Simulated scan of single mutants.
Amino acid sequence: MKGIKIHKPTQGQRWVVADVHANLKTLQYLVEKKLRLRLEDQLFLLGDYLNRGPDSKGVIDYLIELQDDDFQLYPLRGNHEQMLLDSHEKAKNYSEEELRLPSIQRGRGLKDAKRQLYPKYLNFLGSLPYYYELDEFYLVHAGFNFTVKNPLSDLDAMLWTRDFTERFIPEKINYKRVIYGHTTTPLSAIKEAVTNKAQAIPLDNGCYKHSLDEYGHLCAFNLDTWELVCQKNLDKGSDAQ
């Protein structure tokens, strides 16, 4: 699934949350205590739910639980999800000897002994789209490739590109603003982009970089009120993935 068009709800708010990176406690506190998410709200997530923080499995389980509880959850695919899906495919051809060799356990707890994703997680990750198109915005993990005729055709760029704002051509995407993650951005720069209502707004503050000034927050942006809500990292740990 490449992209999905989502219409504004008749009631409720629309929130966008940037890269979670396995920081479950921080995500839960942001969603439940600060945003106070309701069933009529829409919650968009920009990908990279895995790795770097302490609980990749916990974050994915939490997102699936929100969906099962009928919250309007719209998660995107990030490069870390794609890497996990790629490793799942690669492991299909591993010999028994290769399976016994040490490996980087990306997505610990999401795979079986043969390094295959459990069906529950494979279905969730495999269904993630690359972008959402809203009435006034595009939401994407990394950005778009404006050097090609149709920026919505380059799926790889949506997961991996950086510095795409230097080549931004608004008319190629119907003059809509872009909300994106992937590139860790100082908090002051995120706030400046929101205040100035920039054409492209970064939201990834590097939640896992909790020891650095200007970083270490999980950010949520209200698409209707332009409110920015930031939660300092509550997890602290790292799973070194």
Results as ranks from 00 to 15, higher is better:
residue 167 R to I: 10
residue 63 L to D: 02
residue 78 G to K: 03
residue 181 G to N: 10
residue 163 D to H: 14
residue 197 K to A: 04
residue 61 D to K: 00
residue 205 N to D: 03
residue 212 L to V: 05
residue 45 L to V: 01
residue 239 D to F: 10
residue 108 R to D: 13
residue 32 E to C: 05
residue 146 F to C: 09
residue 42 Q to A: 06
residue 177 R to L: 03
residue 82 Q to E: 15
residue 133 E to M: 06
residue 181 G to V: 00
residue 154 D to V: 04
residue 185 T to E: 06
residue 180 Y to F: 14
residue 115 R to G: 11
residue 93 N to A: 14
residue 142 A to I: 03
residue 171 E to Y: 14
residue 33 K to A: 12
residue 165 T to D: 07
residue 54 P to D: 02
residue 212 L to M: 13
residue 89 E to H: 12
residue 152 L to N: 09
residue 221 F to T: 02
residue 119 P to T: 08
residue 139 L to T: 03
residue 14 R to F: 03
residue 115 R to T: 09
residue 32 E to I: 05
residue 83 M to S: 11
residue 120 K to V: 06
residue 148 V to P: 10
residue 137 F to I: 03
residue 200 A to D: 02
residue 213 D to M: 08
residue 119 P to K: 07
residue 151 P to A: 11
residue 228 L to Q: 04
residue 208 Y to T: 14
residue 10 T to R: 08
residue 176 K to S: 11
residue 207 C to G: 08
residue 56 S to F: 02
residue 109 G to S: 08
residue 110 L to E: 09
residue 15 W to K: 02
residue 57 K to R: 07
residue 52 R to C: 07
residue 142 A to N: 13
residue 240 A to V: 07
residue 65 E to K: 05
residue 181 G to F: 01
residue 76 L to W: 03
residue 168 F to G: 09
residue 37 L to G: 10
residue 34 K to V: 04
residue 129 P to K: 03
residue 124 F to Q: 04
residue 145 N to H: 12
residue 229 V to C: 05
residue 214 E to G: 10
residue 168 F to E: 08
residue 190 I to W: 02
residue 79 N to T: 07
residue 202 P to W: 00
residue 67 Q to F: 00
residue 102 P to M: 11
residue 120 K to S: 07
residue 207 C to D: 04
residue 240 A to Q: 12
residue 100 R to W: 09
residue 3 G to E: 14
residue 23 N to T: 10
residue 176 K to M: 06
residue 218 L to N: 02
residue 15 W to H: 05
residue 86 D to N: 12
residue 41 D to F: 04
residue 20 V to W: 01
residue 87 S to Q: 12
residue 183 T to Q: 15
residue 146 F to S: 11
residue 54 P to K: 03
residue 18 A to S: 15
residue 225 T to H: 06
residue 30 L to C: 08
residue 211 S to M: 12
residue 29 Y to F: 15
residue 154 D to T: 08
residue 48 D to F: 00
residue 47 G to I: 00
residue 56 S to R: 00
residue 152 L to T: 13
residue 127 S to H: 08
residue 78 G to Q: 04
residue 40 E to Q: 15
residue 5 K to D: 12
residue 40 E to L: 11
residue 170 P to N: 11
residue 141 H to N: 07
residue 110 L to K: 04
residue 102 P to Y: 12
residue 40 E to F: 10
residue 197 K to S: 07
residue 143 G to I: 01
residue 5 K to V: 10
residue 224 D to L: 12
residue 198 A to I: 01
residue 138 Y to D: 02
residue 183 T to G: 13
residue 18 A to N: 08
residue 35 L to N: 10
residue 156 D to R: 14
residue 116 Q to P: 07
residue 16 V to L: 00
residue 181 G to W: 00
residue 197 K to Q: 11
residue 76 L to M: 03
residue 112 D to N: 15
residue 134 L to K: 01
residue 69 D to R: 15
residue 43 L to Q: 02
residue 188 S to L: 05
residue 17 V to G: 01
residue 4 I to G: 13
residue 3 G to L: 13
residue 65 E to C: 00
residue 135 D to C: 07
residue 91 A to C: 11
residue 73 L to F: 00
residue 186 P to Q: 09
residue 100 R to S: 11
residue 169 I to N: 12
residue 12 G to P: 09
